[in-house]
């Protein structure tokens, strides 16, 4: 499973961005290979349709789960079309959120 988290700083300890599509980066964790990498979000300062493009970007990186506070209506449509699941964050860093999500799943 590949999990994406919208974050403000490009580290695994970064806190989550309040905005999904306008986050500066996405923390991406691959649970099979146990690898973490950070994706730049080129749409963070875009004018319109950033939610649509952000989901497209994540889909192109084979993401199938997102942990985020709020996702806009258009981004949600693309998320649903891409069969990406969504869950609510806990208080904590990017990596803490990913770990908690995976623990809860077990």
């Amino acid at each position: 499973m590949i999990i994406a988290v919208p974050i403000e700083k490009s580290t695994r300890k970064s806190f989550l961005s309040q905005s999904f599509a306008r986050a500066s980066y996405f923390g991406v964790y691959d649970s099979e290979n146990e690898t973490f990498h950070v994706l730049d979000n080129p749409y963070a300062k875009g004018q319109s349709g950033v939610g649509v493009k952000a989901v497209e970007l994540l889909r192109n990186h084979d993401v199938n789960h997102v942990i985020a506070y709020r996702i806009g209506t258009k981004a949600k449509q693309v998320i649903d079309a891409a069969n990406i699941t969504v869950s609510n964050p806990i208080d904590g860093s990017c990596i803490e959120n990913i770990e908690t999500f995976l623990e809860d799943k077990q």
Partner: peptide, 11 residues
């Protein structure tokens, strides 16, 4: 950004 291509389908 009015279009997206997801899983071989145009939105």
């Amino acid at each position: 950004n009015a279009m997206a291509f997801i899983d071989d389908e145009l939105m």
